[in-house]
């Protein structure tokens, strides 16, 4: 057990070379199968469903709506909210290098840190979250579910730096390093929600995906926005809304 802990530490703290655990500390498939079965659905032996997920989260000591669950969904190939296929789950954990609840906890912390600060990783998790949030057979999200997921993701990414502002300086243009332009801020998330509720239409996949690009590139005054660029009209309208609100 002690050796496992050392191995896990080595995996997460050490250089990438340590990512391949030695055979002695390799997570045990048998242990993972056993652990999976504790949470499996009574009717479908190869699936953990929402009930099992809730219990599992509790055992892991996290809230069910912790943003890290979205990262886990990506890592463990979950295609539906709160639903986990056994094979993907076991394979995923073997990749992550944990085969017990205690072993999983530090992995969650690491994933959480990575999600907060690694922009590319955040982007992948973000795009995948649309599929999780979508009801089956629907093309777009209801405002409520979109809002729930954004509440998990956006403030988290903004605080951690994964959604930090990227200056829109074009290639070849001199970037003034002294002027640190401010970008999209947490309060704007609320504006976005207010706007959507006032507008009262669903959220398309395109709007979901482009919002990520928008948040990273827009300045806090919403001045560097090109209405004729390829933004979805929802975002066009939001900029109008935000400009008015910023002026008040």
């Amino acid at each position: 057990y002690k050796r496992l802990e050392i191995a896990v530490d080595a995996y997460f703290n050490g250089p990438p070379a340590a990512a391949t655990p030695t055979s002695s500390s390799a997570p045990s498939t048998a242990k993972l199968n056993t652990l999976f079965d504790q949470y499996k659905d009574p009717d479908e032996a190869d699936t953990i469903k929402v009930d099992g997920t809730l219990r599992w989260c509790e055992d892991l000591g996290i809230e069910a709506d912790d943003v890290v669950t979205l990262a886990l969904a990506l890592e463990l190939g979950s295609k539906e909210l709160g639903t986990w296929a056994k094979k993907n789950w076991v394979d995923g954990w073997k990749r992550l290098g944990a085969d017990s609840l205690e072993g999983m906890k530090p992995v969650l912390r690491t994933l959480s840190n990575k999600l907060a600060s690694d922009a590319d990783y955040f982007h992948r998790v973000y795009n995948q979250a649309f599929e999780l949030a979508k009801a089956e057979g629907q093309r777009s999200l209801t405002i409520d579910s979109a809002q729930a997921f954004w509440e998990m993701l956006l403030p988290f990414g903004l605080r951690g730096g994964a959604l930090s502002h990227v200056s829109s300086a074009v290639d070849g243009e001199d970037v003034d390093m002294d002027s640190t332009e401010e970008g999209f801020q947490e309060k704007h998330v609320k504006w976005w929600f207010d706007f959507l509720n006032q507008r009262g239409k669903g959220v398309t996949k395109d709007t979901w995906q482009m919002l990520y690009e928008f948040i990273r590139s827009i300045d806090s005054k919403f001045t560097k926005y090109d209405m004729e660029a390829a933004w979805p009209s929802t975002i066009d309208d939001f900029v109008e809304y935000a400009k008015t609100r910023a002026a008040q």
Partner: peptide
């Protein structure tokens, strides 16, 4: 035009 593009995206 942008709206039409969106519709077609969808």
């Amino acid at each position: 035009i942008k709206k039409a593009i969106e519709t077609l995206l969808e």
